[in-house]
Design a protein around this nucleic acid. Structure first.
Lengths: 173, 173
DNA sequence: GTCTATAATTTGATAGAC
DNA sequence: GTCTATCAAATTATAGAC
């Protein structure tokens, strides 16, 4: 049930942000009452913290060992998970949404978001084996985050795909 | 006073999103009561609509005639306004934030956000005089939006500057 | 235009029964 | 673990005086 609540929260947060869902929304989604949601997550801040933490963990598992991928394959691997969520469910990256709302996010959530971007940045920089000509990891991640934003609001999946494709062309190997 | 309310709303929205501020917040910011804010903007939806609309208008004026700028100068011109807001006040692009929250935005606001991205896209594509090798406008805008997101949350203005710099290097002329 | 006062609803959260 | 019941606070919004 704890996982089901997080699933519902993630789905809603990735569409409408942290302030875009309530305990009652989640309760309805999973078929219990809001008081029962509080049993699993006493406060909304704790829920969001757990949400971001799980997101980071899942991403770390998905990414895997960066030394086992060629640069282009690594960028493609990262892009694929974003494309999938974007096209299947109109979802942004959870931490991208939280970053957009960062000025109004509870204290304990923000550090998790920072950890997320640190994780991907280091993973990508390892995979890219930083060369003179290679784009920096942050540039690639920024392009993907912005592209998810735009693809969804413009209702045009081609934007994200186009950004991914253009990024891949810039990678050697 | 109407403008002062919009100023306060924009400042708050660009930091914490649409659901991140209340009429009482704005009232305190401008030194009146929340009931008086409702006199100027009957509903929050109308306020947000006016906010996005003003943002689009201001951007159109700022951008000016795209045929009078060389491609690189145009991209730099667009980037400058984002860099300024990002570094001076930790602000995202208003429409970038709204796009991130799009799943929870009132109906009449979303179209304004779409208009914003259409406006910049067309302006940029005109300025770039689309060549075989030129990046598409959407790719550049996406990179900037994502970079603002990351710069702020990572507390590192260098990210946005680095993305802008890398983007400029890809432009001919 | 701004105020006081207040309505109506939503929200995060708690107490206690089962 | 989940429920009913409820609370306190916040939020959007309105009515009517000045």
């Amino acid at each position: 049930m704890k996982e089901a609540i997080l699933d519902a929260a993630e789905s809603r947060a990735r569409r409408g942000g942290y302030n875009g869902f309530s305990f009652r929304d989640l309760a309805k989604d999973v078929g219990i009452k809001s008081a029962s949601v509080h049993y699993h997550f006493p406060t909304k801040e704790q829920l969001a913290e757990a949400l971001a933490h799980r997101y980071v963990d899942r991403m770390a598992v998905y990414l895997g060992d960066p030394t086992k991928l060629q640069p282009r394959a690594a960028v493609k691997h990262l892009a694929d998970i974003f494309i999938k969520a974007n096209e299947a469910d109109d979802q942004m990256c959870l931490c991208g949404v939280f970053a957009a709302e960062s000025g109004n996010l509870p204290q304990r959530v923000l550090p998790e978001v920072v950890v997320f971007f640190d994780l991907i940045s280091k993973w990508l920089n390892t995979a890219l084996r930083p060369a003179e000509s290679a784009p920096k990891a942050a540039e690639i991640i920024a392009a993907f985050e912005g592209a998810m934003l735009m693809s969804r609001v413009m209702r045009d999946p081609a934007i994200l795909r186009s950004v991914v494709s253009a990024t891949l062309k810039r990678i050697n190997g």
